[in-house]
Design a protein around this nucleic acid. Structure first.
Lengths: 210, 210, 210, 210
DNA sequence: AATGAATGAGAATTCATTCAT
DNA sequence: CATGAATGAATTCTCATTCAT
């Protein structure tokens, strides 16, 4: 019913590109279709409106990110040695950086546009927040229960962690653009672990893996 | 040449309100003038365009914030005892929260709209970043030079600090709205000091006040 | 050349239905084809345009109505007694009502749409008028020549007769919908015969049947 | 709030003209504004949509017609002699013809467009019907109660009267165009009075004028 | 004969901005 | 200074029709 998958894909790719460049409001459907090499009318065979294609793109990215995030955090603090745990933290930071990098266009799109637009997409952004804050908070609590971090206020901590991740990646990957990602990874891990009062000397209590 | 200051003030106030509610793109000049109780034409006696009033509002807020920030950070790490310094940090965090709170509407406006809009206001946002990152970085370096914090990468640290401040305040003051600000202050100070590996036991070297 | 008669019939039926429901202008070719259960392209194997199918439908109905009308009016005023003639009038009124009822959808379609549409179908409607006015006028004149009615102005009379028939049926069958058709028939016959100054006492002159 | 009355009047006049010529659906807003000599945008300072201006035009005509009709029917059958009453009937028929003629464009517009358009304006047309049928029926009943007409079914009679008026005027004034209106008036009065079995010999019962 | 994706001309409507009063 | 009517470029979306498969 939605016709040629190649046409649809071309429209999506073009839309991501244009939205990233000019923003949602300033991107014209005519920009998208001419970038995709199809006619104006064709757009409406695949999407009900400009809003719909935007929403589709965001949702696709979010669910990808969410899946990966869940997978990578599952055993984040399950390691039996401090080294293992620190290595896990490194891994997840590296992965998030990578995912962000692989989806740079959509990520920028989402974090730029998802916020503004007079609340047109407020919901989308707030949904992401809710999802990720819950996932982060869960990990912080787990780490605390294993005595790995001292942290009186996991809720605030989660928000601050989210904020530093989001803005940090945003800044280095989209504004500065030319960063040494290894250095960024290292600095982020240090910053985060310190921020959470991570106990590098902790004697780990035996941990039962579910 | 710009006539009645009250008319101008009314337009600015109305614009802040409307921009905050509907976003820049979705706010109509007609919304602003009717909220201000003047006619459509009058708007153009005071502002060249919708863009100009937005820029004016942002610049006003930024320079206010900047002035205050400079003033409060001037002697941030100059204290002679650890207690004094920690108290300074508390004070500045509290002040930033307060400034943010006093200018909630503009702050939201800026951090929502300044980012998106297809880079229409990219410059504004990046200017703010540059200003604040420089100020933050300066303090981080000073603290490091006094041996108060260990911090290998002050640039990354500044960015992350900026990010956690911005998103943290954004979240608690604009999305959650009902937060206990004292608790937020406490949690932020802890988080920040830990993140920077603040040395609570440091033996302060005598410090020459300029 | 016109392929499957069943496909064509399905398209016509669907078109009548949709035109009746939404009007010509507001009916989409997509409405017709999906009601007919065929694809968009198929439509154009059978009809050159949306206009053509509309015209076809109208013409079909008109020629049916015309055939029946000619047949029923042929000996309308040929009866040898007043009773016979009045009965003929009753019969034709009843038949017209019946034809109208049997083709309600097309009739509505025609009398609603055939008139408006910026004269797109003005011609169709005016053709019908011409045909029927001629037929009616012929009967009126015949009746007058046999001394059955006094009627100074047969042309005006025909128009008024046409008008009262059309609007009357339109009103009772399409707007009121729930009318007692026997009562309508009786009232129409009375009204018409009186209007034409029908002479219920007339002494009929012998009539030569052609 | 609706600005220059002259601009509005020009738009209305232009709209009537265009609607009459091309019909509602086929008239473009651009046709109207260029006929009115204003810009496209100006139209929307005065009317919310193309539909609104159409509705406004219809309502204006209807209320005019209604007012006049009520006024002229008030004492229609109040006369003390048959001659007086017949003269009243003549007068009202003449007046309706005149009103119709004075508003030819709108009348055509209404009776063409008010019917079709997929029921878009069905309501308008049915409202008119309701109003006029009630007024006509009231007169028919009054005439019957004074013994002036025999008429078993005043409801049907009203509908038929309305139909013959509407279609008759429509035909002679809009299709034939070149009619002798005096002859039309005479024929209509005859037709109507006969149709209602008007008793030209009636001995009027004294009538109390309210 | 049937399909349905692609087309693109064309429509209504919006709104920042101008300018005569 | 204030006004608000006029402007018209710009934009989204529709839909009859075509045509390669």
């Amino acid at each position: 019913m939605d016709g040629e998958p190649r046409t649809k894909a071309a429209l999506i790719e073009a839309a991501i590109h244009m939205f990233q460049q000019k923003g949602f409001q300033l991107t014209r459907v005519s920009d998208i279709v001419s970038a995709a090499g199809v006619s104006q009318g064709t757009f409406y065979n695949y999407f009900k409106s400009k809003e719909e294609i935007f929403r589709d793109i965001c949702n696709e990215f979010i669910s990808q990110l969410q899946t990966l995030f869940i997978e990578r955090t599952e055993h984040l603090f399950d390691g039996d040695t401090i080294e293992e745990i620190v290595s896990n933290v490194h891994k997840i930071v590296r992965d998030v950086i990578r995912i962000y990098q692989e989806n740079l266009a959509v990520a920028e799109l989402l974090f730029r546009e998802g916020i503004g637009n007079g609340g047109l997409f407020k919901q989308i952004y707030e949904d992401i927040l809710t999802i990720f804050l819950a996932l982060i908070e869960e990990q912080v609590k787990k780490a605390r229960s294993r005595g790995l971090v001292r942290m009186d206020d996991p809720e605030v901590a989660s928000v601050l962690l989210f904020g530093l991740f989001e803005r940090g990646l945003f800044y280095f990957m989209l504004i500065r653009r030319n960063t040494d990602l290894e250095r960024l990874e290292q600095a982020m891990v240090d910053f985060i672990l310190n921020a959470l009062s991570f106990d590098f000397e902790a004697k780990l209590t035996p941990h039962v893996h579910e």
